[in-house]
Amino acid sequence: MLELRLVQGSLLKKVLEAIKELVTDANFDCSATGFSLQAMDSSHVALVALLLRSEGFEHYRCDRNLSMGMNLGNVSKMLRCAGSDDIITIKADDGSDTVTFMFESPNQDKIADFEMKLMDIDSEHLGIPDAEYQAIVRMPSGEFARICKDLSSIGDTVIISVTKEGVKFSTAGDIGTANIVCRQNKTVDKPEEATVIEMQEPVSLTFALRYLNSFTKATPLSETVSISLSSDLPVVVEYKIADMGYVRYYLAPKIEE
């Protein structure tokens, strides 16, 4: 028996909007520790890892580990029927081949049940080693989204370079080139507006902008984003979900052959 009750249902709505463009079908894994997902895009170049810890749910009952295969576009269609202030409960009976999303309005005067058939998805879990990164940039998530969007109108790849000057995003295309430098800036009145750069050593990597743009669909989840870079690893773009967990995206670099 699975019954997960999330008072801030809007988080789940935003999570689906954040991942459904990158991944079509995926397994949601439920265990005592939480509700998670790990899935690659069809080209196996990008991966999304979601974790919603059990403590973040008002009620979290998961009698035994469960993996539920779902089409994320269909889940998104159902969750769009939930109000942004609704309480969302995910329910599934042991051995049943369906999952139910229940939406309760804040004053309990409207209760909706959406039931969906589960799919069999053979998920290939990748082992993601914890790594020391040569540079970690924390910046406003809206700022990062704006940079990715603007640069993708000029070119389709971005070179992200971190030096002691700051973090530089560069691209080039038929019409010309663009360089955006963001300097460390801690003297802001709100911490979420700060740009903080932790650099062990300078690093510079090249990435496809279309994946970074799909990652920025997670912007509504968090005021800040962290970008972790290391010269021999995929970039990690992480949006923390307040008090619950995170949506993490990994993207393999493009390498000079």
Partner: peptide, 14 residues
């Protein structure tokens, strides 16, 4: 030219 790498170059199946 820059060649897009695959994640399996860096992460291995569990």
């Amino acid at each position: 030219a820059c060649k897009q790498q695959k994640l399996s170059t860096y992460f291995h199946h569990q």
